[in-house]
Amino acid sequence: MDTKSIGTNGPSIHTGVTSSRVKKSDKAENANESQAQGTATQARDDFKVSLSDRAQEMMEARQTALNLAKNTSPIREDLVASLRERIKNGTYELDPGKIADGILKEAIRDELAKNPEA
Score class of each variant (00 low, 15 high):
residue 83 L to K: 02
residue 114 K to W: 05
residue 23 K to G: 05
residue 75 I to N: 10
residue 79 L to D: 11
residue 51 L to D: 03
residue 73 S to Y: 01
residue 11 P to R: 15
residue 105 K to H: 12
residue 105 K to L: 13
residue 51 L to G: 01
residue 73 S to C: 03
residue 96 P to Y: 08
residue 26 D to I: 15
residue 98 K to G: 08
residue 68 L to K: 12
residue 2 D to F: 06
residue 103 I to H: 07
residue 62 R to K: 15
residue 102 G to C: 04
residue 84 R to S: 05
residue 5 S to W: 00
residue 50 S to V: 04
residue 61 A to Y: 07
residue 78 D to Q: 11
residue 31 A to V: 07
residue 49 V to P: 02
residue 58 M to K: 10
residue 90 G to Y: 03
residue 28 A to M: 08
residue 84 R to H: 11
residue 19 S to P: 04
residue 84 R to K: 13
residue 100 A to T: 13
residue 97 G to T: 15
residue 114 K to Q: 13
residue 20 S to Q: 12
residue 42 Q to P: 00
residue 92 Y to S: 02
residue 117 E to C: 02
residue 94 L to E: 14
residue 2 D to G: 06
residue 102 G to K: 06
residue 114 K to E: 14
residue 12 S to Q: 09
residue 87 I to C: 10
residue 55 A to D: 12
residue 79 L to Q: 08
residue 29 E to H: 14
residue 72 T to N: 00
residue 46 D to F: 01
residue 40 A to R: 12
residue 38 G to K: 10
residue 118 A to H: 11
residue 68 L to C: 03
residue 17 V to R: 09
residue 29 E to T: 09
residue 27 K to W: 04
residue 96 P to C: 07
residue 59 M to A: 09
residue 59 M to V: 06
residue 9 N to L: 00
residue 16 G to A: 09
residue 116 P to L: 02
residue 58 M to F: 09
residue 35 Q to W: 05
residue 65 A to W: 09
residue 3 T to C: 08
residue 111 E to Y: 11
residue 76 R to L: 01
residue 83 L to I: 13
residue 22 V to D: 09
residue 26 D to V: 14
residue 115 N to S: 08
residue 79 L to P: 05
residue 82 S to H: 07
residue 16 G to F: 01
residue 96 P to S: 14
residue 55 A to M: 03
residue 27 K to L: 13
residue 2 D to I: 06
residue 2 D to H: 10
residue 11 P to Q: 15
residue 39 T to S: 11
residue 42 Q to E: 04
residue 98 K to T: 05
residue 30 N to L: 12
residue 98 K to E: 15
residue 35 Q to Y: 08
residue 90 G to M: 02
residue 11 P to C: 04
residue 36 A to L: 06
residue 95 D to V: 14
residue 94 L to S: 09
residue 82 S to W: 12
residue 77 E to S: 09
residue 87 I to A: 13
residue 20 S to M: 06
residue 46 D to L: 05
residue 46 D to H: 02
residue 69 A to H: 03
residue 45 D to R: 13
residue 116 P to H: 08
residue 88 K to Q: 15
residue 106 E to V: 05
residue 37 Q to A: 14
residue 37 Q to N: 13
residue 63 Q to H: 06
residue 67 N to Q: 14
residue 108 I to D: 10
residue 68 L to P: 06
residue 51 L to K: 03
residue 84 R to C: 13
residue 101 D to Q: 13
residue 18 T to W: 00
residue 37 Q to R: 13
residue 52 S to K: 00
residue 61 A to H: 04
residue 90 G to D: 03
residue 60 E to S: 08
residue 49 V to W: 10
residue 50 S to W: 02
residue 106 E to T: 09
residue 78 D to R: 05
residue 35 Q to C: 08
residue 68 L to N: 14
residue 65 A to S: 08
residue 94 L to M: 10
residue 9 N to W: 01
residue 63 Q to V: 01
residue 102 G to L: 10
residue 68 L to A: 15
residue 113 A to W: 07
residue 87 I to F: 14
residue 115 N to G: 01
residue 80 V to R: 00
residue 74 P to F: 03
